[in-house]
Design a protein around this nucleic acid. Sequence first.
RNA 1: GCGCCCAUAGCUUAACGGAUAGAGCAAGUGAAUUCUAAUCACUAGGUUGGGGGUUCGAAUCCCUCUGGGCGCGCCA
Length: 546
Amino acid sequence: MIKQQILENLKKVIKDLNFPPTDIVLSIPQNPTFGDYSTNLALQLAKLNSRNRRHSSLDIANEIIERLQGTGDPSTSLGTGSGQYLERVETAGGGFINFFIKPENLANDLQEVLDREENYGKSDFYKGKKARVEYISANPTGPLHIGNARGGPLGDVIANVLAAQGYEVLREYLDNNVGEQVKALGATIRAKITGNLLQDNQYQGEYIDELVSKLEIDTESKSDEEIGQLAVEELFEEIMADAHAMGIKFDLVVHESDLRKEAPRIVEELKKSGVVKEKEGALWLAPNDQFLKDRETVIQKSDGSYTYFTSDIVYHQDKFKSGADLIIDVFGSNHHGHIPRLQAAIQALSFDPKKLKVVLYQYVRVKRYNDIVKMSKRAGNFITAREVLDEVGVDAFRFYLLRFAPQTHIDFDLELLKEHSSKNPVFYVQYAHARMSNILVKGDQINRADKGNLGLLIHPMETALIKHLLAFPDLVEELAGNLQVHQLTEYSITLADLFHKFYESCPVLKAESKKLTKARLALVKGSKITLASSLKLLGVSAPDKM
RNA sequence: GCGCCCAUAGCUUAACGGAUAGAGCAAGUGAAUUCUAAUCACUAGGUUGGGGGUUCGAAUCCCUCUGGGCGCGCCA
């Protein structure tokens, strides 16, 4: 691959020139007049290289270029003579180094995509490493609502990306099936059945009525807690069904009722670490951390029972004990206060808190006639994930929620929902895939005596498309590190865009020559491989017809 | 009061500290002897909430103000 060779040569050159080692970024500039690949290396070196301040970034850039030109070996040389890869290298913008690659050489790199087929974009970089990804983990006191449904596709795609990079991934869900909330739900249902007036702090909403008719509970013989447990079991099943409808399956479901059994043990362990103190008859996690000093948290209540926090410490200890190298929690933003405490507990138990990465997402807000709908399970005014899912379909649902960085506050316009679904860019992307499939099916039927030559793909639209295809493996690798998986939607939209443009300007089956048809078919195939891979990571279908 | 997140075109939003801030929707003008018009080309739309600072370079980092979301010890 040309990009890798340029990187290697740059690395060698900065070593030869005695510059300090630095990460070299070789990116595809948005503006093609800045070359096929570009690096800001000289600008970075000028900053690092204070002892050599007489060198401006432009001087450094020219020095690097001069050295590159002289590397000699034709196969990897950056010389611009015949048989070599580069058309030219130039400096611009005060120190950027811009590489212009001969289009036919760039086109030959397409072979890599064709050879790897559905494995394109996968790597075994993290082979032997284990990752655990927890997501959704919604309270089973009501149906999954659209606000926190965002965590589903998000966690799912993070897991997909990690798996594509070689991690052995465990997808897991925590079912909070015990605690005060369960009693409160039980009390609500009892009140409904017995006809007593609902007090404050009880649950409302139609789903309560549905539960009442579905469960047929005998209120005489059962406590609030027992009633609540029945309800929570039912709701858990519904949440799992909703997750399934979103294309999500879990490898492991952990019930908090099981974690609570280990609560006494974990309290003892924390005591031994010296981070527990007794106050007002309860036990508190009180780590020696300035930031957490006034945020002590109860781990055992004065009545001897335990809290969710205690369960979560047990849970995370299990995750660490299982030998996971990477632990990811996808949480709604309202959990942010929980995180430093959890990290403190992990530290107290002598595990490495750096292995835990928390992805916080903001709740999706729903607008109805320009008003933001406040969503609360207790108030019963939420919009369920299922309503939206049934309305727009799973592909549009996932793609929409995955398009934006998790920390952004999405405002979802409910009244434009239907229209929104047909305008969702997912269809633009899927249409591109259908076009690719269609061309390949037809292309299969024509006589292709000539062997294709990828070097014929030198139209600017072809070059732009090829460059984008070649960037895919780097993207997936990067996402496994930074978890910014929304970039995959961006990538697939751009790929579709480039393909549609290529389609308009470069006839495939009706190209000037059979050879060109063959080469273009290869490009269509490479595009299809790459687009299908990115859609697969997103959990969105790649239709052959639309 | 303290803490976390956000503010980019009319709307929804993108952009490892990089070059002329990029898309889609909505608006306007075009494209059918053509591999799928769920497409393409073009037009219009921006002082990246305000003000300072750091930097060769800031939507991005720091400070501050404004406006919104979320959270803050016996809920989960």
